[in-house]
Design a protein around this nucleic acid. Structure first.
Length: 563
RNA sequence: UGUCUCAUGGUGUAAUGGUAGCACGUCAGAUUCUGGAUCUGCCUGUCUAGGUUCGAAUCCUAGUGAGACAACCA
C-alpha cells in the first residue's frame, strides 16, 4: 500500500486519519481502504455534507483506496430522483469522482433474505401492535421497556406473516418485523428495534411498486457497508449509539473477521444559519427564501450561486478540522476562506453601486481617454485592459462628503484623491437639490498626474473607483447578509422563523458597471474594487445583468467610523 | 437516577508523558494607485480537586459542565 503524502507533507493527522493510518500499518483488511458517502436522496446537500464528503474522498485518495457514493434510499415516502441528481452534481462541483454509485435499494433482496434468516434463527418476530403501543413499551433511557405479547410467536407463524407483509396482504402500519434482542438494554436501540415496515402507499424512486416492505435504516445501513466491503465507515456523532447495533446484526451471520469500522466525528454547525434538512426545507416551502439554491442558503447549490468557489469550501473545511467536540463554527471563517480563494483569482472591475455624478470641470467636453488598468494585481499573468475616462463620471455617493469626519481620505471640498488608473483630482464643490441631496460633485484634474506619468507618484491618501457615464452599463446588484439575526438559531427557544434577518437580501437597481461587464456568464467571479466579491447570478442575461455579492471586502474604514 | 461521548485563548483546532503552537478574530504599526491584499508586533487558553511520575493538556480517580440516544425517519 502506497501512502500519498505529497500534498500534506507535515500536516498533523486528524484523529480519524490517525486511526486509518494505524489500521493500514497493521495490515488490517490487507491494507485496503474503502470509504463511502451515504446520503439519503431527500434533500439538497449543504456545507455540513461537504465536510463528510471531503473526509471520505480525501481519506480514500490519501491511502490509494476508493470512495463510493451510496444512496441510502430505504424510505420511498421522502425520496426522489430530483435529489439524486442534485447530490451528484454537488459532489462533482467539489471536485470529487466516486468509484461506484450504489443504492441501498440494490440490496433489498439481500436484506430481505437476511431477514428470513433472522426469523428462522428466532432472532426476529412480527409484531402487530400499533406504533404508539410499541413506543410506549420501549420505556425510557432510564426505565426498561416491556416485551411485546407477540415476541415469542413461533418461527413458522413469523415466516407466514412476514411473507404476507411482503406480498402486500397486510395494510400499511399494522405490522412490523422486529429484532428480538433485549427490552431492558441500557442502549435504547437494542430494545427490539424495528427491522421492516410496510409501505404500500408510495412507489420507490427506483424499484417502483415492487416492494411492499422496506428495511429500516438501522437494519440496512451497517449491512450495506458490510456488503460493499467498506473498511472505514465515517459518520457523525449521533450515530455513536447505533454502532453496537450494526455490529450485532452482522455478528448474527458473519463468518469472517472483516467488519466495517465506524468512526464518528462532529457535525458542522455554523453561526447565523441552520443546517437541519427539515428547517431548510421549511424555509424553501414557506418561501422565506427563493429556493434550495437561494444564495443565502448553506446548501452547496446556494453557496455556489452566492459565488463561493469549491476551493473556498475546501479551505474552510481544512481549517475547522474533525474532532469529537460538538463545535459552533464562526461563519466569518467561511467568509475568510472565500476571500482567500477569490483574492487570487477574481478580476478587478469598477462598479458603482450607489452612483452620483462627478464632473471633471477642466476636462475637455467630448474627449475620451482609454486608461490601462490591471486585471488582478495579485496575479500579473492576468494582464491588463482598457477603461474609458471622460468628463462625466459616476462615483459612490459615500465617496463624497461636504463635512467629513476625521481621517476621511475621499472627496471633500479642497481635498485631492486619485481616480484609480486615471488622474489625481481636487474637489471643488457640489450641487444640491432643495432637500439638500447631493446632485453632482465637481472637481478639477491635474493633467500631469495620469497613471504611469512621473507626476502621478504624488502622494494622495485616497483612491476612488469610478465609471464613465457614457461608457457604463446598468445592473441589478443583490447584497446578501446572514440569514439569521442570532448566532445560534438552533439553540434558541423561539421558532427559528422568528429569528430570520429581515435585511438578509437588499436589491440595488441602477448600479453602474464598466462596459467590460456587458458580456459575462453566470457564476463568473469578480471583485468590484473597494467593495467586495461578486458573481454573476444564474438569472442574469445580457439585457438584464444581475450580480450577487459573495462577501464584502474587509473594511477598516467602517471600523474607524465606529470608534 | 441508565448507556455512550466530549471539555485547550472570543471562535475553531494542534501538541500521541518532555518549551502549550497554528488559523480566524481583536488591537497597534509598516506598506499600498483597492481604507483591499501583503508584512510585523500585541492580546487572550489546558473545567475543578486529588493521585501516578523526575516531569501531566496528555495517564488514573472523583467531581462539575455540555451533547447524543426513548420515529413504522435517515
Amino acid at each position: 500500500m502506497k501512502i500519498n503524502e505529497e500534498e500534506t507533507p507535515k500536516k498533523n493527522l486528524n484523529f480519524i486519519e490517525a486511526i486509518v493510518d494505524q489500521d493500514v500499518k497493521e495490515g488490517k483488511n490487507d491494507g485496503r481502504v474503502q470509504t463511502r458517502f451515504p446520503p439519503e436522496p431527500n434533500g439538497y446537500l449543504h456545507i455540513g455534507h461537504a465536510k463528510a464528503i471531503c473526509l471520505n474522498f480525501d481519506i480514500a485518495k490519501r491511502y490509494g483506496g476508493i470512495c463510493n457514493l451510496r444512496f441510502d434510499d430505504t424510505n420511498p415516502v421522502k425520496e426522489d430522483v430530483e435529489y439524486v441528481d442534485s447530490i451528484m452534481e454537488d459532489i462533482q462541483w467539489l471536485g470529487y469522482q466516486w468509484e461506484n454509485v450504489y443504492y441501498a435499494s440494490d440490496y433489498f433482496q439481500k436484506l430481505w433474505d437476511l431477514a428470513i434468516q433472522f426469523i428462522k434463527k428466532g432472532l426476529a418476530y412480527v409484531d402487530e401492535q400499533s406504533a404508539e403501543t410499541i413506543a410506549k413499551q420501549k420505556g425510557t433511557p432510564t426505565v426498561p421497556g416491556i416485551e411485546s405479547p407477540y415476541r415469542n410467536r413461533p418461527v413458522e407463524e413469523n415466516l407466514v406473516l412476514f411473507q404476507k407483509m411482503t406480498d402486500g396482504e397486510i395494510p400499511e402500519g399494522s405490522m412490523v418485523l422486529r429484532a428480538k434482542i433485549d427490552m431492558a438494554s441500557p442502549n435504547m436501540h437494542f430494545r427490539d428495534p424495528i427491522m421492516y415496515r410496510i409501505i404500500t402507499s408510495h412507489p420507490h424512486h427506483r424499484t417502483g411498486w415492487q416492494w411492499k416492505v422496506y428495511p429500516m435504516y438501522d437494519f440496512a445501513h451497517g449491512q450495506c457497508d458490510y456488503f460493499e466491503g467498506v473498511t472505514h465507515s465515517l459518520c457523525t456523532l449521533e450515530f455513536e449509539v447505533h454502532r453496537p447495533l450494526y455490529d450485532w446484526f452482522i455478528d448474527q451471520y458473519q463468518d469472517s473477521d472483516y467488519r466495517p469500522r465506524q468512526i464518528e466525528f462532529n457535525r458542522l454547525n455554523l453561526t447565523y444559519t441552520v443546517m437541519s434538512k427539515r428547517k431548510l426545507l421549511q424555509l424553501v416551502q414557506e418561501k422565506f427564501v427563493s429556493g434550495w439554491d437561494d444564495p443565502r442558503m448553506p446548501t452547496l447549490c446556494g453557496l455556489r450561486r452566492r459565488g463561493f468557489t469549491p476551493e473556498s469550501i475546501h479551505n474552510f473545511i481544512d481549517k475547522i478540522g474533525y474532532t469529537k467536540f460538538e463545535a459552533l463554527n464562526d461563519i466569518g471563517l467561511l467568509e475568510h476562506a472565500a476571500r482567500e480563494s477569490l483574492n487570487k483569482t477574481a478580476t478587478r472591475v469598477n462598479a458603482v453601486l450607489h452612483p452620483v455624478k462627478l464632473i471633471v470641470t477642466n476636462y475637455q467636453e467630448g474627449k475620451v481617454e482609454m486608461m490601462t488598468t490591471q486585471n488582478n494585481p495579485e496575479d500579473p499573468e492576468a494582464g491588463t485592459r482598457e477603461v474609458a475616462f471622460s468628463r462625466e463620471l459616476f462615483i459612490e455617493r459615500d465617496d463624497f462628503m461636504e463635512n467629513p469626519p476625521k481621517n476621511y481620505f475621499r472627496l471633500t471640498p479642497g481635498q485631492e484623491v486619485r481616480l484609480k488608473s486615471a488622474y489625481i483630482v481636487k474637489c471643488t464643490g457640489c450641487k444640491k437639490d432643495d432637500n439638500g441631496e447631493i446632485m453632482e460633485v465637481y472637481c478639477e484634474y491635474d493633467p500631469l498626474t495620469k497613471s504611469g506619468m512621473p507626476e502621478s507618484n504624488r502622494k494622495v491618501k485616497g483612491t476612488l473607483h469610478w465609471v464613465s457615464v457614457a461608457h457604463c452599463v446598468d445592473a441589478e446588484v443583490r447584497l446578501y447578509d446572514r440569514l439569521f439575526n442570532v448566532e445560534n438559531p438552533s439553540a434558541d427557544e423561539r421558532d427559528f422563523r422568528e429569528l430570520l434577518n429581515p435585511d438578509s437580501l437588499q436589491i440595488l437597481t441602477g448600479c453602474k458597471l464598466e462596459n467590460s461587464l456587458k458580456n459575462v456568464h453566470p457564476l463568473e467571479h469578480f471583485q468590484f474594487q473597494r467593495i467586495g466579491y461578486f458573481t454573476v447570478d444564474l438569472d442574469s442575461t445580457p439585457n438584464k445583468l444581475i450580480f450577487n455579492r459573495t462577501v464584502s471586502l474587509k473594511d477598516s474604514w467602517s471600523k474607524e467610523l465606529n470608534k
